[in-house]
């Protein structure tokens, strides 16, 4: 409950900050960016958006059943969670994608690899590659590997 309230307050605050309250026939109007000097409050809000996604992704990555249920996904049917092979998201190598991925015999993105792990080793149900669970997982994996050297295509 406390988390939901915090999220709602954050959302309202962000809308105000970003001036994105108006909408048109084509959906929400785009927010204007970089037109004025950024305030610390704005920067903090940007960071909070990221960290909320990281938190969600961290929980999913570590097999939190409540978070999976809330997002209506099933990442594993073996009892295994992502973190059991990838503590601290190690060996997930987000900085090496996209690349030819041997297991798939295909050129793959990180999102392709996440879904491969869900479907094959974890025997779970693949998730929408553009959906909220994928974005959260991707956020956590990138965040945990921040500072790694970009090395696209490395095997």
């Amino acid at each position: 409950m406390k988390g939901k309230l915090a999220l709602a307050a954050l959302g309202a605050g962000l809308l105000g900050l970003l001036g994105a309250g108006a909408s048109s026939l084509w959906g929400p109007a785009p927010a204007l960016a970089h037109k004025a000097k950024h305030s610390q409050e704005q920067l903090d809000a940007f960071q909070q958006v990221l960290m909320e996604q990281v938190r969600l992704g961290d929980l999913l990555f570590h097999g939190d059943a409540d978070t999976e249920k809330q997002m209506n996904i099933k990442l594993s049917n073996t009892g295994m969670a992502c973190a059991m092979c990838h503590p601290f998201a190690s060996d997930s190598h987000p900085h090496e994608f996209p690349k030819f991925q041997e297991q798939m015999n295909a050129f793959a993105t990180l999102r392709d690899m996440i879904n491969w792990c869900i479907e094959k080793p974890n025997e779970g149900v693949k998730i929408d590659p553009d959906g909220p669970a994928m974005k959260a997982l991707e956020a956590y994996i990138y965040w945990a590997n921040r500072g790694s050297k970009l090395d696209t295509g490395r095997h």
């Binding site: 998201a89 090496e96 590997n145 921040r146 490395r154």
Partner: peptide, 12 residues
């Protein structure tokens, strides 16, 4: 295979 990898502890 991890030479370019920098890791950070979880937060949740």
């Amino acid at each position: 295979d991890n030479v370019n990898q920098i890791l950070h502890p979880r937060i949740a």
